[in-house]
Computed example of a mutant assay.
Amino acid sequence: MIDLRSDTVTKPTRAMLEVMGEAETGDDVYGEDPTVNALERFAAALTGKEAAVFAPTGTQSNLLGLLSHCGRGHEYIVGHTAHTYMYEGGGAAVLGGIQPCPLPFAADGSLPLDAVEKAIKPDDAHFAITRLVCLENTQAGKVLPLDYLQRYSELTRQWGLKRHLDGARLFNAAVALDVPVAQICQYFDTVSICLSKGLACPVGSLLVGDEDAIRSARRWRKMLGGGMRQAGILAAAGLYALENNVQRLREDHDKARRVADALASLPAFTLQAAPQTNMVMLDAATDVESLARHLESDGIRTAGTRWVFHQDVSDDDVDRLIESCRRFR
């Protein structure tokens, strides 16, 4: 089965499993797991931040970021279809008493900065206190330009707001821009990095930031049940991924572009835009339900209008997908 539902479906390679099996471990809640400590140091250095904390999921690492900046009665400005707002169970509101202020994303995946500025609340007891502006990179496979991040950073600093990035696919963005990941992270106070998507770890996420934010996040991690014991087995996969799987993401981007180029000549298909990273986004004009049934009969699993390419989709799989699409009417 070819699975294009998400890059979360990736499985660890034999090489990754081998380093996991050989990992040195200790009790991470006591701060004594050497492999977790090594992963956190490596991630902090890679992103240009002071510290990092290892969490079991991206949902939790995003929540740790929000909780480290915001208290009850605070508000964060966020995209209306952003993961932290739409797909993480309302954790910031339920567990942190943090009110979201959702704004429509622009077509390029950014939050329009004029709309952000208008949404910042005045110092008035009637309103929640605006504390944070959260971005997502990539957003539906789209990469936020560096000049936009510079203007976003200037605006948030002008208003004294904190900056969090849901960087679940941050390395896809860095590879697409051909820049070190730290060049993106410099515009944020905290960044959540998912290890179990394109980087292909079985489990794990990281939050990076300054010492104070990460100290707070580590305390919240314990309260949220994210403190693990001999977690070095999992952290070893993260280290392997950061050392070996980042540049490999280019292959996923190439697969997405190859499929998009093929679909451009087929009348049954309309794309939202040319892919920038590892996602092909079909336009709503495409008969997605009929297409999904057709592809499923050919052993290809999809979910809605988004096709996500990853290490477990081979070049032969891409050929099979294109051929199946050509037979779809």
Rank of each mutant, 00 (worst) to 15 (best):
M228C: 03
L17C: 14
V191P: 01
T156N: 10
F54T: 02
L291I: 00
L46P: 08
V78T: 03
I120S: 05
Y148Q: 02
A200V: 04
L66I: 12
T138P: 01
V313E: 05
M86Y: 05
A15P: 13
D108Y: 13
R229I: 11
G73Y: 08
L295C: 01
C194P: 06
M86R: 09
G225S: 02
R169M: 11
Y187E: 11
V36G: 05
A256E: 00
D287R: 02
W220F: 12
N278Y: 00
A168F: 01
A51R: 07
S110Y: 00
I120G: 05
V191C: 05
D7H: 14
L271D: 08
G26M: 04
D147T: 08
H83K: 15
R301A: 13
R221T: 00
R229C: 10
I77T: 11
G198F: 01
N244M: 06
G232P: 01
A45S: 15
A174H: 09
M279A: 08
L39H: 06
R169F: 10
A45V: 12
A256Y: 02
Y85P: 10
R5L: 13
L17F: 09
A23Y: 09
L271F: 08
K197M: 13
D283V: 13
I2D: 14
T84V: 15
T156W: 04
Q311L: 11
H83N: 07
G58N: 14
G160Y: 10
S153R: 14
P275Y: 08
I322F: 00
R257C: 04
R72W: 15
A92F: 04
H294Q: 06
R329Y: 10
G204T: 12
A23Q: 07
V19R: 09
D252W: 09
H164A: 03
Q183D: 05
I233L: 06
D319L: 02
D287H: 03
A52D: 04
P275S: 04
T286M: 10
D147L: 03
Q158V: 11
S68W: 12
T302H: 05
F54P: 07
R221C: 02
R218Y: 11
M228R: 03
A119P: 12
D261I: 07
L111W: 10
G48W: 14
C70A: 05
G91Q: 11
L242D: 04
W159P: 14
Q139W: 05
L206S: 09
C194L: 10
L234D: 08
S110F: 01
E136C: 03
Q230V: 02
T130L: 04
L64N: 07
Q60I: 09
T156Y: 03
L234A: 06
L224I: 00
V9L: 11
D28M: 00
H253R: 06
A82Y: 04
T8V: 13
D28C: 02
Y87P: 02
P102C: 02
D7K: 09
Y187F: 09
P12F: 07
C185Y: 13
A82V: 06
L113C: 03
P104W: 04
V280E: 00
P56G: 00
L132N: 02
I184C: 01
I120P: 06
A43W: 04
R215T: 15
F54M: 10
R229G: 11
L177Y: 03
G160P: 10
I233A: 04
G65N: 04
L64K: 06
M86T: 07
M16F: 12
R293F: 13
C201L: 09
R326L: 00
A45H: 12
D317N: 10
